[in-house]
């Protein structure tokens, strides 16, 4: 009989248990930190992505309102600001905004949220297709203001979100598909 085998088995179980535990810890959202109701707006006028965020919030049974061009005034009675990061030239043109005006709008919104102590949840739901120079400018400027971020993995292939979130100590939840964001949303909002 091989006397080493039980020890090897225990070590193997411990090893894989540790890996599985770390993986689950990385995927398990932190306890609820956000409150309802929430205001959803796109940072960059990717209105389709903002609409997806709204539908996800509805599936998570959250009280959410979408505002295409929301300002600080729209934060009245809101308890969370959801910034859906992503630039769309078509969306900007459609909203009658240029890049600078859109950034000014988001700066004012973020400043007002800070003043009112309203936490920001950042989302990026366009994946790799919704990355690019302008979107990256928006991510770099506004992601650091977030208390937490939920993103599609396919939009983080270069690790930009990981890098910013690590530097700013922002919990980052990565999902494979938009629908996978429903469960984390349920968990991070207080009922």
């Amino acid at each position: 009989m091989d006397m080493h085998r039980p020890a090897e088995i225990i070590l193997t179980i411990l090893f894989f248990g540790l890996i599985a535990g770390s993986y689950l810890a990385a995927q398990t959202p932190p306890p609820p930190v956000f409150e309802q109701p929430l205001l959803v707006t796109s940072a960059g006028q990717s209105s389709g992505d903002a609409q997806i965020a709204l539908q996800l919030a509805k599936r998570a049974a959250l009280a959410a309102t979408l505002s295409k061009t929301g300002t600080g005034k729209d934060l009245e009675n809101q308890k969370t600001l959801v910034l859906v990061l992503g630039a769309s030239m078509k969306g900007l043109g459609s909203a009658g905004l240029d890049t600078n005006k859109e950034k000014e709008r988001i700066r004012e919104l973020v400043a007002e949220a800070k003043k009112k102590n309203i936490p920001i949840l950042a989302m990026h739901l366009g994946g790799g297709q919704r990355r690019g120079e302008l979107t990256d400018e928006i991510i770099n400027e506004f992601l650091p203001a977030a208390k937490m971020a939920i993103i599609l993995k396919s939009g983080n292939q270069d690790g930009l979100f990981t890098k910013i979130c690590k530097a700013k100590d922002i919990p980052l939840i990565e999902v494979d598909k938009s629908l996978d964001a429903v469960e984390p949303l349920k968990k991070i909002f207080k009922r």
């Binding site: 209105s47 609409q51 997806i52 078509k90 297709q129």
Partner: peptide
């Protein structure tokens, strides 16, 4: 993968 694009009102 499908992009979502809003129809511009103008």
């Amino acid at each position: 993968e499908f992009r979502l694009e809003a129809s511009p009102p103008n």
